[in-house]
Write a protein that binds this DNA or RNA. Structure first.
Length: 622
DNA sequence: GTTAGAGTTGGGCCT
DNA sequence: CAGGCCCAACTCTAA
């Protein structure tokens, strides 16, 4: 062991000093003389990956807030942001500061695992000791997978079984009351402080309104390694009202925990996706960037509910609908993602069903994803996708959600369900990969495991299979808000419509459109498709896809013959055909006759009687 | 090997 | 009007 230890604490995703097992471990290094808190501003994130202004802005605010917290504990400390890929800039830091230890929080997702493996190898070569500590999830996803027989966790039940075997979730780590000084905040970089040149195409070029000076020097435009600003990256201000930072996150957490009844009776499925003020906690962005610790939230809820239960005021909710269930799902997805390669795409993803969606990812001969995705030959699908993305489908509920998503960087969980179902298995029959990409661009809280996981769930590609349950575009939002407040806010052109037509303005008579100051087809689009015709087609096609039963790792998918296979199947079953309303009516009537026909007696004995012990009952009239 | 019952959060109708 | 029931029929798991 060296006489003096000098550490770098490498911040990556989690931006806080509370509830950090890795930081605790770092500060416990024997003979620790200095710690430098570093962030490597990875060019891949700002050039190689489409990220909306809202997430950039939230991230920068969170970095600044973290830096301020470090300074509060030790005046000579701050977050040192070095512009460049970690594998380039970390070795420069090791050399400059005589570093003996590199400490960071473990990150189990595929991108981070590959990056961290490279860093660990470099560190080993230089004799720098690496300390990697799990802390981002309730349980270490890799450990969960191991206990689960090296298989991805595909049901919550399965995950819970594993969790029980592993043991209790630890209490939050203590927040450090003091921190050692940094070695120095300067780097010996005279030769190396050059402009970093991104080799590929800048995928964020179209949202840049000013000059990008962020990478002019490794030390940043001011030469002091300070947190980048939106202006330095050539970005205009974000539109979101959600402010980042560990301080802001803890404020929100305290507010939530301050209402014990809300915590104890939290029930996700019963919160309204239509409400103007978020009906949920809005903690997800703060969890995504680690502004608050996951154990702070878990134990905060546990303690508050325990106290509340003593008052005997009412019944509390249980898993999976309560807050614990929500956090468990996050862990379940993390464990699934870490075990399953290609989790963010269909191709090569063994847990994902192959469905012949339009606008799937495109790959070159070597099997590499082509980015940015070239325009598809399927013009109708491209047009539907563009309309969905830009909030101009002609379905006010979908459009309002998509506009809110772009503007705020957040929409309610059930609103995400609704727009995801519409884009994929509900109506548009477009690949979930496209939807996932848009969420990645616009959601502040986008997570590399939960997001693809939920897209597979909603598209019935994995985790969920009841594809005949489709969210209504008119009836469903009306259940929680008949007045359509969210639509009136985000689609202001519709604000004068009467409640009756707020989710289906195209059905309003011309006179109503005139008096509502909005002509459908002129001031607001006519629906891009027929909700019910497309729904029936989608269900029929999903049924075919399930019958064929291919998954992303199938030979046919890798060789590119799978799509034709399913098209042949559709031709066989007639799933691609559009049925007129009359045909549907006739079919339904025929079905009904079949059901209420001669088989009636058997029906009663097996179904009704067996279940309830009741015979047929005369229908009450009136 | 078979099968009933459950599965984070659907729609429609009835009470 | 919130809550229960049925619809038609998916997969996974525990018995």
């Amino acid at each position: 062991m060296p006489a003096e230890a000098r550490a770098i604490y490498w911040f990556r995703t989690d931006l806080r000093i509370t509830d950090s097992p890795a930081l605790t471990k770092c500060l416990a290094i024997p003979n620790l003389k200095s710690v430098n808190f570093a962030w490597c501003w990875d060019p891949n994130y700002i050039y190689g990956h489409r990220v909306g202004l809202n997430r950039f802005s939230f991230l920068l605010e969170s970095m600044q807030s973290l830096s301020d917290e470090l300074t509060k504990v030790n005046k000579s400390q701050k977050l040192q942001v070095v512009r460049g890929p970690p594998e380039k800039v970390l070795p420069i830091m090791w050399e400059s500061w005589g570093i003996t230890h590199l400490v960071f929080e473990k990150d189990a997702n595929e991108y981070a695992k590959v990056r961290d493996a490279r860093i660990k190898k470099l560190a080993e070569e230089k004799g720098v000791e690496v300390i990697e500590v799990h802390g981002r999830h309730l349980y270490d996803p890799e450990q969960v997978v191991k206990v689960n027989g090296n298989k991805p966790t595909m049901t919550l039940h399965q995950w819970q079984g594993v969790a029980q075997k592993i043991g209790k979730i630890p209490r939050p780590s203590e927040t450090p009351k003091k921190l050692p000084d940094p070695n120095s905040t300067d780097l010996k970089h005279s030769k190396k402080d050059e402009k970093y040149k991104w080799p590929g195409e800048d995928l964020n070029a179209e949202i840049r309104t000013g000059k990008d000076t962020c990478y002019d020097r490794m030390s940043g435009p001011k030469g002091d390694y300070s947190v980048p600003t939106m202006t330095e990256m050539g970005f205009s201000d974000a539109t979101t009202t959600i402010k980042g930072g560990t301080v802001e996150g803890h404020k929100r957490l305290d507010t939530f925990l301050g209402n014990p009844e809300d915590v104890a009776t939290f029930s996700k499925p019963h919160t309204a996706p239509t409400s103007l003020e978020p009906s949920t906690t809005l903690l997800s962005p703060y969890i995504k960037f680690g502004c608050i610790g996951i154990r702070e939230l878990w134990w905060g809820c546990k303690d508050v509910i325990e106290e509340w239960s003593k008052t005997g005021k009412g019944k509390k909710t249980s898993e999976p609908e309560n807050m614990f269930g929500q956090l468990e799902f996050r862990d379940m997805y993390a464990a699934a993602e870490t075990a399953q390669e290609n989790f963010q795409q269909i191709r090569g993803n063994a847990v994902c069903r192959y469905i012949d969606w339009a606008l799937q990812n495109q790959y070159n001969d070597k099997g590499d994803l082509i980015l940015p995705r070239p325009r598809d030959d399927d013009e109708e699908a491209e047009e539907r996708f563009a309309a969905w993305r830009e909030g101009r489908t002609g379905f006010p509920w979908i459009d309002a959600c998509m506009r809110q998503l772009k503007h705020e960087g957040w929409i309610h969980h059930l609103a995400r369900h609704s727009v995801a179902c519409f884009l994929t298995r509900g109506q548009c029959y477009i690949s979930w990969e496209r939807g996932m990409e848009v969420f990645d661009e616009w959601l502040i809280d986008w997570d590399p495991a939960s997001n693809p996981g939920n897209w597979m769930w909603l598209s019935c590609s994995a985790f969920f299979a009841q594809y005949y349950r489709v969210y209504g575009l008119v009836s469903w939002p009306a259940k929680t808000d008949k007045h359509g407040e969210l639509v009136r806010k985000y689609c202001p052109e519709l604000k004068d419509f009467p409640d009756k037509y707020i989710y289906s303005p195209h059905l309003a008579p011309e006179s109503v459109q005139k008096s509502s100051n909005c002509i459908i087809g002129k001031d607001y689009p006519f629906p891009i498709l027929d909700e019910h015709v497309e729904k029936d087609r989608c269900i029929a096609r999903l049924k075919d896809a399930y019958a064929v039963g291919l998954h992303g790792d199938a030979k046919e998918v890798l060789e590119g013959t799978a799509k034709q296979m399913l098209e042949d199947k559709h031709a066989e079953t007639g799933a691609g055909e559009v049925k007129s309303d009359k045909e549907k009516k006739d079919l339904k009537a025929a079905e009904k006759r079949k059901r209420s026909g001669d088989g009636n007696i058997e029906d009663w004995t097996t179904k009704k009687q067996g279940k309830k012990g009741l015979g047929p009952v005369e229908k009450r009239d009136g």
